[in-house]
């Protein structure tokens, strides 16, 4: 089990509320860290010069974000050795082909479109949580909850 936090990169407060609610409903114990834009996400994951926060077990990444967009965040996560193997699920509103193609090209582990109906959203987060936090075996040095070297 990966007990590290879930980093939720999301600028819409309603979506934050629904996602946190869905995790609670699905009885997921992991702490949820919210980053409201791409810049915040990067300063949490890859602080320039500073100490990085707790390594997340999973990153849920929205595409359309203020300042630095989700795809750019993904690109920087993959190009830095400290975060290159982090599981990143793009969780977004759009199902535009270019977003899907670009996400996978940049190394997203998964692409999930947020369903409009909350119950479907609940199912989707449950599947995501079960898979990425319970079933999936992460790369050893990125095991969630361990401090970074």
């Amino acid at each position: 089990m990966n007990g590290g936090p879930i980093l939720l990169v999301e600028d819409n407060p309603d979506d934050v509320l629904f996602t946190v609610r869905a995790f609670e409903k699905n009885k997921m114990q992991n702490e949820v860290v919210v980053a409201g834009d791409g810049e915040e996400a990067l300063s949490y994951l890859l602080p320039p010069g500073g100490e990085p926060g707790l390594v997340p077990s999973l990153v849920l990444l929205d595409v359309k974000l203020p300042k630095i967009d989700g795809l750019e965040v993904l690109r920087r996560i993959r190009s830095d050795p400290r975060t290159a193997a982090l599981p990143v699920v793009v969780l977004t509103t759009s199902s535009e082909e270019r977003d899907i193609v670009e996400s996978y090209r940049l190394g997203a582990n998964s692409f999930v479109r947020k369903p409009v109906v909350f119950n479907e959203f609940l199912d989707a987060t449950n599947v995501l949580g079960v898979y990425w936090l319970l079933v999936n075996e992460p790369a050893p040095s990125w095991r969630g909850g361990e401090a970074q070297a």
Binding site: N12, D14, K64, E96, R98, P115, F121
Partner: peptide, 22 residues
């Protein structure tokens, strides 16, 4: 336009449906 629609128009609907459910 389509790109913007697919991103921006669906989000408020998710809030409407979501809060109704809540």
């Amino acid at each position: 336009f389509a790109y913007s629609v697919s991103h921006d128009l669906r989000a408020p609907l998710r809030s409407l449906a979501g809060f109704s459910e809540v």
